[in-house]
Structures are given as C-alpha cells and as structure tokens.
Simulated scan of single mutants.
Amino acid sequence: MEFNGLLPKLPKPVRLFLVAFVIVLSVGYFTGLLFVSETSTASVDGIEENYLGNESDENADVMKFKKSKRQMLTIIHTHILSMSFIFFLLGILVWLTKLPTKLKVFLTVEPFLSVLLTFGGIYFIWSGVTWFKYLVIVSGILMTATYTASAMIVLYQLTFSKQYGNTFNQ
C-alpha cells in the first residue's frame, strides 16, 4: 500500500477530525513550552537551577530546592512516555503526507532522539553533570522545531493541498 500523499485523499470528515486533533495537540504542546518559560527553565542557567535548586543564591526572587530522586524519576518517566506518544501519533500523520522520504525520516525519528537527550540530559544535570544543560537546550529547540514543522506540514496538506484541490471543498 502506498502511504505517500494519502493524507489529502482521506474523506473530508476524517481530515476534519485530524485537523482538530493536530490543533488541540499543538495547543497542549505549546502550553507546555509556556510552562517551561514560566519556571525559568528556558535558559541554560534556569535549567540547572530548576533541578539543582538555588538555596545558595541569597538574591533569588523565588527559592528553589534540589529535586528529590522520586521527583526526577516522575518528571522523566511522564515526559518520556507522553512525548513518545505525541511524536508517534504526529509521525504517523507525517508518513501520510507527500514529502521526500529522507525528510519524513528526519521529522519522525529526530524527535525521539531529542526526547531522550532532553530528559536524559536533565537527569545528568540533576546528577551533577551540569554541562549537559547545553545539550538539553539544543535538543529541546530541535524537538520543538521538528514538532512545529511536522504539525504545519500535516495541517497544510489536510486543508490546502494543491495537488488534489482545496480538500475541504470535496
């Protein structure tokens, strides 16, 4: 069975369902990024402070304490599982688009590597290997870029694919 370019050919009700899914998934994903921004973990030093605490900083606006092992395992466990499902489901949709295979492979495999590097890196930061904060920033940016590109491509091909005409008019 040929999967390349199947997405715009799906029946209108299925495409509408998928558009709604990708939009709601994206709201959830980007709300998570807003949370990261609010917890000061969007910066290199903020990542380290969020997991290792800032008790030694007398001028800190908000006092933070080093996360416990239980907290770290909960954070890592829930994020790796949930992000895996997010990227698995979005990846299925990417494989149904009309794109070059190499681009599909990148958009669908890279996020899994970034999830491991990001949350594995957070664990290493917590363990005291603080230079991993740079890896966490880079992998997090790459993960978000691939998510954004994948979601936009899927939404575009579900709604505005020129190859088959405007798919919502069919």
Rank of each mutant, 00 (worst) to 15 (best):
E2V: 04
E2H: 05
F3K: 08
F3A: 05
N4Q: 07
G5E: 03
P8T: 13
K9V: 12
K12L: 15
K12A: 10
R15S: 08
L16S: 07
F17E: 07
A20L: 11
V22K: 00
V22E: 04
L25R: 03
G28C: 13
F30R: 01
F30W: 12
T31D: 09
F35S: 10
F35L: 07
V36E: 07
V36W: 02
T39S: 14
T41W: 01
V44Y: 00
D45K: 08
G46F: 06
E48C: 04
N50V: 10
N54I: 12
E55G: 09
N59F: 15
N59Q: 11
F65D: 06
F65K: 13
F65A: 12
K66W: 02
K66Y: 05
K66E: 15
K69A: 15
K69V: 15
T74W: 02
I75K: 01
I76D: 06
I76A: 09
H77G: 10
H79A: 08
H79D: 04
S82P: 03
M83I: 08
M83F: 15
I86D: 03
F87K: 02
I92L: 10
L93E: 08
L93H: 06
W95Y: 06
T97I: 07
L99G: 06
L99P: 08
L99E: 11
T101A: 04
T101G: 00
T101W: 00
K102Y: 07
K102Q: 07
K104Y: 01
F106H: 01
V109C: 01
E110Q: 07
E110M: 13
P111Y: 02
P111L: 05
F112G: 02
S114A: 10
L116G: 12
G120V: 14
F124P: 01
G128Q: 07
G128V: 10
F132Y: 04
K133R: 13
K133Q: 11
L135C: 06
V138Q: 04
I141K: 00
I141R: 01
L142S: 09
T144N: 10
T144K: 03
T146F: 03
T146I: 08
Y147F: 15
A149N: 01
A149H: 00
S150F: 09
A151P: 09
M152I: 15
I153W: 00
I153G: 00
F160C: 10
K162Y: 02
Q163V: 15
G165A: 12
G165S: 10
T167A: 05
Q170T: 13
